[in-house]
């Protein structure tokens, strides 16, 4: 899980839908597992598969041209709804390392970061241009450089910087998580409790 993030160049899966909620990313009936593994098989399950269980040929993830893409590009307000981390596990387990959107829901954004999937917030213009580039040429690649906090549409050369706080940036580039940090600061927590009483 703790895969370090440095520079990623990849093709993208374009999901040009707004307000993609976590019930679409992973429907509730698949949340009965007690492990973190295997959720990628059900990523976007009810869009990806027909009621018969056959892959839905009209859904973008089933298009062979996007096979192996490590970046998901989605419309604004991606990941709204439930706090289920299973959504981030499904995205990571499927093989995505980054999600690009013009706007992310809070809890899901945190969940992605905690699973070493990088949420990249871009301007609406950048997003629209990227969707257009992919439509014109499905092999369009993006390059995401965490150190310089830049994302580049390699088809047009347009680059943009994206925001991430320096703490989370270090976590992603060093492969550290919040629990590592908190456990290292346990004496502060005990001191806080004492001071409060």
């Amino acid at each position: 899980m703790k895969e370090k993030f440095t520079v990623l160049t990849s093709t993208c899966v374009p999901l040009n839908v707004e307000n993609v909620d976590t019930d679409q990313i992973i429907p509730a009936r698949f949340l009965k597992s007690t492990s973190r593994e295997g959720f990628g098989d059900h990523l976007f399950n009810d869009w990806r598969f027909l009621p018969s269980g056959e892959p839905n040929p009209d859904f973008i993830l089933n298009s062979p041209v996007f096979k192996g893409a490590k970046v998901l590009v989605a419309g604004k307000n991606f990941g709204c709804g439930s706090s289920r981390e299973h959504a981030a596990w499904a995205i990571a387990d499927y093989g995505f390392r980054a999600v690009i959107s013009s706007f992310f829901a809070d809890i899901h954004r945190n969940n992605e970061l905690n699973n070493f999937v990088l949420p990249v917030t871009v301007s609406p213009d950048f997003l629209a241009e990227l969707f257009a580039s992919i439509e014109a040429d499905p092999t369009t690649e993006v390059t995401i450089d965490l150190a310089s906090q830049t994302v580049t549409n390699n088809a047009t050369g347009r680059a943009e910087t994206f925001a991430i706080n320096s703490y989370k940036k270090e976590c992603l580039s060093e492969g550290l998580d919040d629990i590592d940090y908190l456990i290292a600061h346990k004496s502060d927590i005990e001191a806080f409790e004492l001071a409060r009483n």
């Binding site: 809890i107 945190n110 969940n111 905690n114 919040d178 629990i179 456990i183």
Partner: peptide, 17 residues
């Protein structure tokens, strides 16, 4: 609301970031 990684943080340290 929080994710499961954060549930683990709270269980382990009674704190989250």
């Amino acid at each position: 609301g929080i994710g499961t990684s954060e549930v683990e943080m709270v269980l382990a340290t009674q704190c989250i970031l």
